[in-house]
Lab assay of single mutants.
Amino acid sequence: MLEGKVKWFNSEKGFGFIEVEGQDDVFVHFSAIQGEGFKTLEEGQAVSFEIVEGNRGPQAANVTKEA
């Protein structure tokens, strides 16, 4: 699992990017966010995740919000 911070997330469109120190930003789709209820992320929020190869390159999977 990697750790990063949410760079930005558009809850209307359901996607955004996660910043990872020393690496390129990683695309995140709302469907990759773990948990119940409305799936969104806040700018600057700490998250842990895995990287998988998507249709358009690397993207986040199994995203969990850090306490």
Rank of each mutant, 00 (worst) to 15 (best):
V52T: 15
D24I: 12
V20D: 02
K5Y: 07
A61D: 14
A61C: 05
V20W: 13
A61P: 01
K7N: 04
G16P: 00
E66F: 12
G57Q: 04
K5I: 11
S31K: 13
V52E: 15
E3P: 15
R56W: 13
A46C: 04
V47M: 02
V26H: 03
E66Q: 10
Q23R: 12
K39E: 05
E19C: 06
K65S: 10
E12L: 10
K5M: 05
R56F: 10
I18C: 02
T64I: 05
F38T: 06
K39A: 07
K65L: 11
V26Y: 08
G37C: 04
G44H: 07
G54T: 14
S48K: 14
Q34E: 08
P58G: 06
G35L: 11
I33T: 02
V63C: 04
Q23G: 09
E3V: 15
A60L: 01
A46P: 12
G4R: 01
E50I: 14
F30H: 13
T40S: 13
E53T: 09
V52K: 14
G14K: 04
G57F: 07
V26Q: 02
R56Q: 13
Q59W: 08
E36P: 10
K39G: 08
V6L: 04
D25P: 06
G14N: 03
K13G: 07
A32M: 05
V28P: 00
S31A: 09
A32C: 04
G44V: 02
V26C: 05
G4I: 01
S48T: 08
I18V: 05
E42H: 11
L41N: 01
I18W: 01
I33C: 03
G37H: 06
V52A: 12
E12K: 11
G57C: 04
G57Y: 06
G22N: 14
T40W: 06
G37E: 08
E66S: 09
Q23D: 09
N10I: 13
Q59A: 10
G4C: 02
Q45C: 05
H29C: 04
F49N: 00
G54S: 15
F17Q: 04
R56C: 05
E43K: 09
G22F: 12
F15Q: 04
K13D: 04
Q23H: 13
Q34W: 05
V52C: 07
G44I: 02
E19D: 08
V28H: 00
E21S: 08
T40R: 06
I33N: 01
S31C: 04
A46L: 15
G22K: 09
G44Y: 07
K7A: 06
V28F: 11
F49R: 00
D25C: 04
V26A: 04
S11F: 09
L41F: 04
V63W: 00
E50A: 12
E42I: 11
K7I: 08
E12S: 13
G16T: 00
Q59R: 09
Q34M: 07
T40L: 10
A60C: 04
Q23L: 14
S31V: 09
W8P: 00
V47W: 01
W8S: 04
K13V: 06
F17E: 03
T40K: 08
A32G: 13
N55V: 08
F38K: 08
M1E: 09
G22V: 03
F38G: 07
S31N: 10
I51F: 04
E53I: 08
G22Q: 11
E12T: 11
S48C: 13
S11E: 07
Q45H: 14
P58K: 11
V20E: 02
W8E: 02
S31P: 07
V63T: 02
